[in-house]
Design a protein around this nucleic acid. Structure first.
Length: 154
DNA sequence: GCCAACGTTGGC
DNA sequence: GCCAACGTTGGC
């Protein structure tokens, strides 16, 4: 089993929206970056565990644990002209973009802030992709040891 | 709102 | 294939 972290802007779609969704499940659509696409399409498997991270907000950080409940399949929002993430170059016969379904397992007892994570960047969380300078990927892997350590902070 | 990082696009 | 321009991300 592998571990991941997915970013979302709570003003657009946050943990409250996920909790309010049917079966606390959502399709993680709208990712338009090839590296993240490859992760969604090829690497994320059933039962993989996923941190939900709030970005572009007053206190960015990890707020919940999710689980993959459906593996990579074509992101149909790319075919919808009216969708904000519409991509005319994605052919339904040969989809360019993919998504997975995730379900909220539980909210963390408290937010584990980016600031707090950074305090451990040189030691326990050394090499964590999220903490790398300039990191902008919306879907990133988390090492098992890092996952455990972050939960121990909770 | 600013700005650094960096992926993508398009002219050549 | 190079690289400047542009757009997006995301912390601050």
């Amino acid at each position: 089993m592998r571990y991941w972290l997915m970013k979302t802007e709570p003003d657009t779609f946050g943990v409250d929206d996920l909790a309010a969704a049917a079966r606390s499940t959502t399709s993680w659509d709208g990712v338009r970056n090839y590296q993240a696409r490859n992760t969604l399409r090829d690497d994320m498997k059933m039962k993989d565990q996923v941190f939900l991270y709030h970005s572009s907000t007053a206190v960015p950080g990890i707020v919940a644990v999710m689980e993959v409940v459906k593996e990579g399949y074509p992101d149909t929002t790319a075919f919808d002209k009216k969708d904000h993430h519409y991509d005319p170059d994605s052919d339904p016969a040969k989809p360019r973009w993919y998504m997975v379904d995730v379900r909220l397992k539980r909210r963390l007892a408290r937010i584990i802030t980016l600031e707090e994570l950074r305090k451990h960047a040189a030691k326990e969380l050394r090499g964590m992709v999220l903490l790398r300078p300039g990191n902008r990927l919306s879907v990133v892997p988390v090492e098992a040891a890092h996952w455990k350590f972050i939960l121990s902070l909770e």
